[in-house]
Design a protein around this nucleic acid. Sequence first.
DNA 1: AGGGCTGTGTGACTAATATCACGCTTTACC
DNA 2: GGTAAAGCGTGATATTAGTCACACAGCCCT
Lengths: 209, 209
Amino acid sequence: MNLQSLQQLLPGFEEELYNDILLHGSVREVKAGETLLKVGQTIRATMIIVTGLVKLYREDENGKEFFIYHLDAGQACSLSMVCATRHETSEILAKALTDTTVLSIPLEFMDKWMSKYKTWYQFVITSYRNRFEELLKTIDAIAFTSMDERLQYYLEKQIEKSGRHLKITHQEIANDLNSSREVISRLLKKMENNHWLTIHRNSIEWLKK
Amino acid sequence: MNLQSLQQLLPGFEEELYNDILLHGSVREVKAGETLLKVGQTIRATMIIVTGLVKLYREDENGKEFFIYHLDAGQACSLSMVCATRHETSEILAKALTDTTVLSIPLEFMDKWMSKYKTWYQFVITSYRNRFEELLKTIDAIAFTSMDERLQYYLEKQIEKSGRHLKITHQEIANDLNSSREVISRLLKKMENNHWLTIHRNSIEWLKK
DNA sequence: AGGGCTGTGTGACTAATATCACGCTTTACC
DNA sequence: GGTAAAGCGTGATATTAGTCACACAGCCCT
């Protein structure tokens, strides 16, 4: 990690903060499909995504995984920040969707930098707010809407991150939404009839909007 | 608001911070049933509950209200904190369940105090984490469990805050859970048969555990 | 080319929840 | 005391989502 790429990733920080990050942060590579963070794992560092795409899940007692939101380049895992103060364990599951590079900042610097650097403070607060909002939107989706709307909302989130051509199976979608394959297949079929998308084997092409 | 009651409400702060709070904070009284914060309202201050109990809701486009969590004495509205940095509007609806006293801290002090007072920083971060966790638990409840479990979880949260004798109607519960009165009535009946509670008019008495 | 695996399509059935319709009780109020 | 409103109980029915069973198609492998 060099200064230039860091400035591009996290623009507007103080010079000194960039140096601090370069000095104390460490870079970690994670292959597509691997788990970055398990539920119950102790959090020792704040993680910022440098490249790649990460999916965050909530897990139930049977290991079922419910998709919450994405993190991509320049975004930080809020939970890893909140946990910062007191070596807490993770409440969520994070999986790399693509090959991913992660920048880890040991916890002790979280506190220091919060008071030292105005821009770091802004960054953390903004991260919180954005994650918080995503959680609220997720709650809206499951509390107020039915499966077809949730599927649409889900697909729109995916294409926003990964492009119109989604490489995903019906089963995977069903898992993310805590539904079943048949239900998803049928709903996708309906959407295809409405020309919102076309279904291929192992992938979906989004046409709508 | 005097120093002593403030120390009791928010223990462990620096002397100077208490003075700052007394100097810059203002106290507001809200009657039971009144709305503290509407969706879309601009947030001008961070709010901390001094006495009373507040219920926070998420609202859908038709005005249906979905209960998320409570705030009680000593707790702060996280959203009012996250919004602090840049005069944002509220994403949630807050209603006073009982007569409530609220301590308002104008936004400009949020930033100042975050870097100036270690304990204020801790307080804010801890608030975030707790609210974040509550949101995750709410997601668990609606994503993974069925109505009877959600109702149980809901009732347990209420008695934790308001005691075993809940003054609430079936209709109100149904609104909070985005369900319908009949469903809630039937489920409550079942719980009564299992001796988990007794149903009275306008109230429920929790027996379980 | 044939066999097996994975992904998808579909009908029939079940379960959970929502909605409708109505009656009955308690409380509030004139 | 009478009446209206609010709260609750309950059966019938509708809708949505999940489950089961099975067929079939595409792909990989030898």
